[in-house]
Design a protein around this nucleic acid. Structure first.
Length: 834
RNA sequence: GCGCGCUUGGUGGAAUGGGAGACACGCCGGCUUUAGGUGCCGGUGCCUUCGGGCGUGGGGGUUCGAGUCCCCCAGCGCGCACCA
């Protein structure tokens, strides 16, 4: 018998039941594991098959919370399982450590962002260790390390060289609270994704990544992810990219030099176009209105629209507004003159910011036509309705045949689209086109705590890349910078840092004073992990080829179209640069649910925060982990009010007591318990399958059943039997992935040397897991009437005979005629009466 | 509005088209304990004349057999949302 944990127990406590002291266990094994140096990924020569298990890294905002506990419990099971299965597993840890909270802490509380961030990193690192996450600590990185952001900048310059990073002036999303611009992906329903302030628009010159160049590949390559990523995330990415197939059509505007192009998915409805609309906030609208008699009215309308918030503007049930610009566009298919209007229902940044309006077949156009009494012409005969429906205000969508469309009458939709597009192309007035909803990724941020953009602006040379050998462009000391939000980057206030000679001509020049979006940092961290101290590039290409793609990626659903889309984009660019060997970074993605409290998201303002530290102090790490994993399927939310850490504690203590009793007993062959052997081997088979399919709640239920079976067996006098020893060994080994401390403690109580975490996952013997008899269900007319125990290989005829003879079947048949008997050996017989 | 998903005891949840409610929580009873508990054992869907009847949001269908597959409806949740 090995040491017990109750050495510090009160000697006057005469309690006959051993008490499992979780906290003493934790401190003992935490130190021992450090000494053993577990969980380090194998090197280049390691012959084991590799598996890259990754958890989304955390932002070091403070200590870990309940959400972290859930996410890392889930990711850790996979990592530990594959290690025990003999894989060379890389399970790295790092910190997404640039970002606003550090800067806001600096502004509010006068702290140095560097000190604040790195203190939090140490706090979180200690918490991860305590929580027993099987991380390879030798690979730890932080995106705010100069050794890391040097390569973020290096990658930016490769993008810049290829024209994938560029600057343009454009109306951009502006968060008035955070005093910085935001990417489209960071605006949720018109509000800032982070602070929920209502976003406004500003015209600014900013840096963009040309993600739209990769729209097709980002969309098409999703077929590779089908089945290993959730449909929900794939759908969200598809919708976000938003590919529409149609045509571009050129309209001549009378008195305007260049024709105006519109995008439409329905060129077959061209003959139904009765007016033309340009986005009120587009340059085109201003140009068309300029100098005309309607200019004043246009400007007034534009100001009126500008005053409405983005949130209000997004409300779809708003009445349509607009203004006539006094101009006419000419329909290229029939030469008709159509009035040109400006309206806010047409978006400046989608398509060309101008549309042909076909009110009979587009609800928005119809609403507009009815508001301003514009003509409506039905040009498609559809099954869904007719002119009277249009009259009543319902546009006719769907397929049909063309009418009122000149020589195209009678054609079906698809053929009409084909012909009309081809005819336009022949006239030089249009062509087939594909349009995306995806916009280029705006990466400039007017904040201090991020990777500086490694560009120098020179009056003579323009935008000049900082030479690679001068990277990193380090952040100036925060004390030399005015961090207060003022709409321009704090870096612009660090005069000594800002002014540098132009790398090209040596003349006076200025550094770009913006920093990069932190999503740039996190778009390649999984590559840096492969060779975290590599000095000749962002990563060692050979190491990346060995480890990538990530086999299992665990993280929250909130990144469905942010981090996950950006990372996929980066990977494709790096593939094109020849730096990586695969185009998709994450072979499988698991989205864990959230931890909520009493039905709602935990928050300070709701007063329903559950403090992880308190839970750990009350129940211990293992009980909290098991509670998270046992609560339900990992992808579902956990309501902490509905679950029971007490239940988990009880189970772990049961296993601990069993291990103590069994470990203390001498092995005796005569007390064998064959049914327990079967349970053990059946459990191994099932838990293996369940862990691989991420059904941890059911896997734990099976281990609880094995525990119960083992308790019964020991109580029935089988203590010392090989079957009992085998069962506790299997249970302890499998428990290691869910409750690492308790498993290690049990392993020691069984008399083994540490560590259980270096043991192999148990292997089930099919010969032992097969039962000698199975219970066959006897149904009459589909209703359960009796059961009969039979051999697993019973034949149909025998089984039918046995079933018909059962008391329950006879009572239910009660002399009635048997029409047919469905026999499914060995589990079921259904007797159908006539 | 469009798209997707979900709906099973008091609760969280199990169930390759074949025994509904595994495993837990909670509750009830018993045992052990000076007492308490994170100990041990048993019970726990509803009804019952103890034969059985009913039961997976509601309605219909397919099938020898449906929680599971199909159709309709309701409720809840999520995503997108004037994307031409």
């Amino acid at each position: 018998m090995t040491e017990t944990v109750d050495s510090d127990r009160d000697p006057v406590d005469r309690d006959p039941v051993d008490r499992y002291d979780v906290h003493a266990t934790e401190s003992r094994w935490l130190a021992e594991w450090e000494r053993l140096g577990l969980y380090r990924a194998g090197g280049e020569d390691d012959p084991r098959p590799r598996k890259y298990i990754l958890d989304m890294f955390s932002y070091p905002s403070g200590d870990l919370h309940m959400g972290h506990a859930e996410a890392y419990s889930i990711g850790d099971v996979g990592a530990r399982y594959w290690m025990m299965r003999g894989y060379n597993v890389m399970h790295p840890v790092g910190f997404d450590s640039f970002g606003l909270p550090a800067e806001n802490a600096a502004i509010k509380r006068g702290l140095d962002p560097v000190a604040w961030t790195y203190a939090n990193i140490e706090t979180q690192s200690a918490a991860y260790r305590k929580f027993a996450v099987s991380f390879d600590w030798s690979r730890r990185l932080a995106t705010s390390d100069p050794d890391y952001y040097r390569w973020t900048q290096w990658l930016f310059l490769r993008f810049f060289e290829r024209g994938l990073a560029y600057r343009k002036a454009s109306p951009v999303n502006w968060c008035p609270d955070d005093q910085t611009v935001l990417a489209n992906e960071q605006v949720v329903a018109g509000r800032c994704e982070r602070c929920h302030a209502v976003v406004t628009k500003r015209n600014l010159t900013q840096w963009y990544f040309r993600i739209t160049d990769y729209a097709d590949r980002l969309l098409d390559d999703m077929v590779e992810l089908e089945g290993t990523w959730s449909d929900q995330v794939l759908t969200m990415q598809r919708n976000w990219i938003g590919r529409s197939v149609g045509a571009e059509v050129d309209f001549v505007i009378e008195g305007h030099d260049a024709p105006v192009t519109v995008f439409t998915t329905r060129p077959d409805t061209l003959f139904g176009a009765t007016f033309f609309v340009v986005a009120v906030d587009s340059d085109l609208a201003a140009t068309l209105a300029a100098g005309g008699e309607h200019e004043a009215a246009y400007l007034a309308y534009r100001d009126q629209v500008a005053a409405i918030s983005e949130v209000e503007r997004l409300a779809t049930d708003r009445p349509k507004t607009g203004i006539f610009l006094g101009r006419y566009a000419v329909n290229p298919v029939n030469g008709e003159r159509m009035p040109v209007w400006a309206a806010d229902y047409v978006l400046a940044d989608y398509g060309t910011g101008a549309i042909m309006a076909v009110p009979a077949h587009d609800q928005r156009d119809l609403d507009f036509a009815r508001a301003f009494d514009l003509p409506v012409r039905v040009v498609i005969n559809t099954a869904v309705g007719d002119a009277s429906a249009v009259e009543a205000g319902t546009a006719l969508g769907g397929d049909g045949t063309l009418v009122n469309s000149g020589g195209y009458d009678g054609l079906a939709k698809d053929e009409a689209i084909e012909r009309i597009t081809a005819d336009l192309a022949a006239k030089g007035a249009g062509k087939k086109a594909i349009n995306f909803r995806l916009r280029d990724w705006l990466i400039s941020r007017q904040r201090y705590w991020g990777a500086p953009i490694p560009i120098v602006h020179c009056a003579t040379c323009g935008e000049v890349a900082v030479p690679d050998d001068e990277l990193p462009v380090r952040l100036p000391d925060s004390t030399t910078v005015d961090l207060a939000p003022k709409g321009i980057s704090p870096l612009a206030t660090a005069a000594a840092w800002l002014h540098v000679p132009c790398p090209k001509c040596g003349g006076d020049a200025q550094r770009d004073s913006d920093t990069m979006d932190t999503f740039v940092d996190s778009s390649w961290y999984f590559l840096r992990y492969c060779s975290p101290s590599y000095e000749d590039g962002p990563f060692d290409p050979a190491a990346v080829r060995r480890w990538m793609p990530v086999a299992e990626y665990t993280g929250g659903r909130e990144h469905a179209i942010l981090h996950l889309l950006y990372s996929r984009f980066f990977m494709k660019v790096l593939f094109d640069l020849g730096l990586v060997g695969c185009e998709e970074p994450f072979a499988a993605l698991y989205n864990q649910g959230m931890v909520v409290m009493a039905g709602s998201k935990m928050s300070k303002s709701r007063g329903n925060l559950v403090n992880l530290g308190d839970e750990l102090a009350a129940h211990g790490v293992d009980a909290v982990r098991v509670t998270m994993l046992f609560a339900g399927p990992p992808e579902e939310d956990i309501d902490w009010a509905d679950v029971s850490p007490t239940g988990a504690s009880k189970w772990l203590a049961r296993v601990w007591r069993l291990a103590g009793e069994i470990g203390a007993a001498a092995e005796v062959d005569e007390a064998e318990d064959p049914p327990l052997r079967r349970t053990t081997h059946a459990t191994i088979a099932e838990v293996t399958r369940l862990v691989e399919s991420h059904r941890f709640n059911v896997a734990i239920a099976r281990l609880m059943e094995l525990t119960n079976a083992l308790r019964k067996s020991v109580d029935a006098g089988h203590l010392g039997a090989p079957s009992v020893n085998e069962a506790i060994a299997a249970l302890t080994t499998m428990l290691a992935v869910f409750a690492p401390y308790t498993a290690e403690e049990c392993w020691a109580r069984l008399g083994h040397e540490p560590s259980v975490h270096q043991q192999s996952w148990p292997v089930h013997d099919p010969a032992l897991s097969t039962a000698q008899t199975v219970t066959c269900v006897v149904q009459v007319n589909g209703k359960l009437r009796d059961r009969v125990d039979v051999a697993p290989d019973v034949d149909e005829a025998t089984l039918q005979e046995l079933a018909l003879a059962t008391e329950g079947a006879q009572r239910a048949i009660a002399g009635a005629a048997v029409r047919t008997v469905v026999v499914r050996p060995p589990k079921l017989v259904n007797i159908v009466l006539g």
